[in-house]
Each structure stands twice: as structure tokens, then as C-alpha cells.
């Protein structure tokens, strides 16, 4: 591991704490492993928030999380003594019961730790360039995901405009899928709706979604044979250096051509003011 000016012994100067519901292969790489009971992440993080502020917590309450009070006291002491703490979290946290509130609990803990020492937190993004999508949607629309343009400007409401909810409720009548395979990963009612409405898929392979789609277009895989940019999960953009040449068009080209074909059609928007002072 990287040695640095302030951590000259590299890995030896670092402490890694792993929190998971089961012993994974990563345990071997960690100095400390805390096994939390499934579904108790939010409680554990909330207890830690109270503990860093020296709020009294009884052992019995802590025990329910599967982690002992001693282990947590040790963790809090280590966190406060750290020069620079970093928390990484993944879908085990954000996709289980509590969802975004589990992530919020961790982010709040990280923020509050700055009263004692330097602390940061970062989500581990699973899919290649999901960060890029986040970043671009933010600068172009103000929002990171879960957006509707149906009123002619961006509106945001996860739960209302987020894909799984939209599909399960049947709120859309045509779906364009790019760089994803919801037909393989989403709950069955969502997949059923994808099959019910015309779906268009752009993908380097014929995917599960392609098989239930109206239209599939094969495109060149990003970073393998399609050039461009991808954002690392800390929001640093990196250039792609494709090693192969593909005879398939890129996602960018196909999407642009679809957009241009739509642009060539008459607009349905009713003439109105250029701007709204009050939104819906």
C-alpha cells in the first residue's frame, strides 16, 4: 500500500475496520471486523452518533446490533484518534431496509466526526460510470437522478420519478435503456411493465432487456472500443483509451441520431412563456 509523507509505513500506519453482516474475504485484509446483525446498520450508526457525543447508551440496546459496547467504544476511540478518517459504503447499506436513510446515517456520522478530527465518506459505486451520469445530470438539470421533464423543465422526486417505482406503477409508456440491464436486475412487476410497453435498448450485447424489447441496437463497449470519458467515484473524470476498434456505432452516436430524428419532427410543446417564476 502507498507510503506517504504522513503515513511513512504505508499499510502499517493505517487501520482498516470492516463492518459487514457476514465474514467475507475482505475480513482478511481488515484489522478489525465488526459483524452487524442484518438490518441493524441504521441503529448501529445512530448509536455511534450518540456515542461520539458522549450520550449514555445501555449495553442491552447495543447488544441488539450484534456488536458489543466494548467494540464500539474501541471504535469511537480509534475514530477520534485518527488523523484522517475515511468511510466507504456500498449497496449493502444503501439497498437494504432503510435505504437512503442508512446512507444518510453514515454521512451524518462522518460530518459530525469533523468536530473531533478530519473525516470523509464516499459511496462505493458499483457500476462503471454511474458517477458520470450523476455529475452530468446535476450540472445540466440541478438534480442527480429521479428527474421528470414533462413540464418542460427538470423536476426531482425520488420515489415518484425513480425507475423501479415508475415501472411498478406503470407510469411510463415507452422506455429507452442504455448501459443497463433492468430486465435482469429489477423486481418482476417492473420487468413485466418493460415488456408491456415499447422498450428500446442500446447495449454491446443482446441482454435480458433486449429480449423483451421492441428495439435493440448493438453498440461499441465503452472503454474497450468506444472512446470518451468516465468519472471515478470521487468525481474525477478520466479519459478512456480503447484498445479495439468496433464495427458497431457508439452509444453517443446512436443516441444523438435518435435525438436528431426526434428533433426533426414537429414539436408538441404549446407556445408559452420562456420562463416560469413559480414551479409546480
Amino acid at each position: 500500500m502507498q507510503k506517504s509523507r504522513f503515513l511513512p509505513r504505508g499499510r502499517k500506519d493505517r487501520t482498516m475496520v470492516l463492518v459487514d453482516i457476514r465474514e467475507t474475504k475482505s475480513v482478511k485484509a481488515a484489522d478489525i471486523f465488526l459483524q452487524v446483525r442484518p438490518g441493524k446498520d441504521f441503529e448501529l450508526l445512530t448509536i455511534l452518533r450518540a456515542m461520539i457525543k458522549d450520550q449514555p447508551i445501555s449495553d442491552a440496546e447495543v447488544a441488539e446490533t450484534g456488536v458489543s459496547i466494548e467494540a464500539l467504544q474501541d471504535l469511537v476511540a480509534r475514530m477520534k484518534a485518527a488523523k484522517f478518517g475515511a468511510m466507504f459504503f456500498g449497496m449493502g447499506l444503501s439497498m437494504t431496509r432503510g435505504k437512503h436513510m442508512n446512507s444518510a446515517a453514515l454521512l451524518t456520522l462522518a460530518a459530525e466526526m469533523n468536530a473531533f478530527t478530519k473525516f470523509v465518506a464516499m459511496p462505493m459505486r458499483g457500476h462503471g460510470n454511474v458517477t458520470g451520469a450523476d455529475v452530468i445530470m446535476r450540472w445540466q438539470t440541478g438534480y442527480p437522478f429521479g428527474i421528470s421533464f414533462n413540464r418542460g423543465y427538470p423536476r426531482y422526486n425520488p420515489g415518484e420519478f425513480s425507475t423501479v417505482d415508475v415501472l411498478v406503477r406503470g407510469d411510463t409508456d415507452c422506455v429507452f435503456v442504455i448501459g443497463a440491464d433492468p430486465g435482469a436486475t429489477m423486481p418482476q412487476p417492473a420487468i413485466d411493465h418493460l415488456a408491456r410497453v415499447p422498450t428500446i435498448v442500446l447495449d454491446p450485447h443482446v441482454t435480458h432487456t433486449s429480449r423483451l424489447a421492441k428495439v435493440h441496437i448493438t453498440t461499441a463497449p465503452a472503454g474497450i472500443s468506444a472512446p470518451g470519458t468516465a468519472y471515478r467515484m470521487d468525481e474525477i473524470p478520466l479519459p478512456l483509451r480503447p484498445a479495439l476498434k468496433s464495427s458497431y456505432p457508439t452509444d453517443e452516436e446512436v443516441t444523438r441520431r435518435i435525438k436528431e430524428a426526434i428533433q426533426a419532427k414537429p414539436d408538441w410543446m404549446v407556445e408559452g412563456p420562456q420562463r416560469l417564476e413559480t414551479q409546480v
Binding site: H127, G128, N129, V130, G132, A133, I136, N150, T163, V166, L167, D171, T172, D173, C174, V175, F176, V177, I178, G179, A180, P182, L202, P221, A222, G223, A226, P227, G228, T229, A230, Y231, P237, L240, T250, D251, E252, T255
Partner: peptide, 15 residues
């Protein structure tokens, strides 16, 4: 009410 979804495994330019 069309839906544009995904954008993970693709380039920023396509996004």
C-alpha cells in the same frame, strides 16, 4: 411519458 434509464455502463459523451 417516455423514460430514459440506465447510463451506467456508457461514456459521459453518451450520457
Amino acid at each position: 411519458m417516455p423514460l430514459v434509464y440506465g447510463m451506467s455502463n456508457t461514456t459521459c459523451e453518451a450520457q
